[in-house]
Amino acid sequence: MVAMRQRTVDRVAVDQRALSFTRRSIKREAKQTGLKLALSMVDLTTLEGKDSPEKVRALCRKAICPAENYPEFPSVAAVCVYPSMVPVAVEALAGHPVRVASVATAFPSGQAPLAIRLAEVEQAVADGAAEIDMVISRGRFLAGDEKNLMSEIQEVKQACGPAHLKVILETGELETYDRVRCASDLAIEAGADFIKTSTGKVVPAATMGVTLVMLEAVRDYFLVTGKKIGVKPAGGIRTAKQALHYLVMVKETLGDSWLNPELFRFGASSLANDLLMQLVKQMKGKYMAGYDFSEA
């Protein structure tokens, strides 16, 4: 498996291929299906210093029923919060299929001693988080310390217990596709259930190019082992149109079996409302106003 990490990525080819996914024409029923699918894949996220219990409760209400007047629209996949807000989210989502995801391991920098990061993960899981979004130590990875990084991810995976582990690569700080590919392979080998592009705190966040590189890493791992790993682009995906482009990319890279919330997610906060606006536009033929949907 180590040999897989020595791949190099053709940047021009990846960018061209990623661009080609933005040129598909998706209309009418296919568009509606795609929009609903994208909505069901959203991890509704709030990761701010000013997050309060009531803001998280409001977010959870929106996660269960994204648009009050349209109960036929699907719930989102999960609510993503800081560890301190996990108990609030768990209580608010009790009895509903929406999962609680928590960022952990000294998000977003990851710059804390390993013991503290592991304790944070254990606490979030104990509080009821079903999914843990960890950040990798980008500094160590860029310094070439791949072995240590791998063991860190393995220890976090162990601390997660039954919870799913999403490994955030923070591709904006890795800078090259070669490193994104290498980090993806490393995280998958170490036991990640999902690999995630970004924290949303660094620009650039998710791009079509880096997501394609990660999807290809997942594809190659599947072809060797038969095991399916999920992918979550996060940050910078704000419009329904972008979301459809990503779905096309997943379908044409990994196939239909990845087109479900168990294996593909969008980490976003403002995307959900744009998806709702486009869905209602498709149904009623009229453009909606921003105030027609709740902000949370």
């Binding site: 033929g285 009229k286 453009y287 106003a289 921003g290 027609d292």
Partner: peptide, 8 residues
């Protein structure tokens, strides 16, 4: 008609 129907 688009101006008329646009809720924004």
């Amino acid at each position: 008609p688009v101006v008329r129907d646009h809720r924004g």
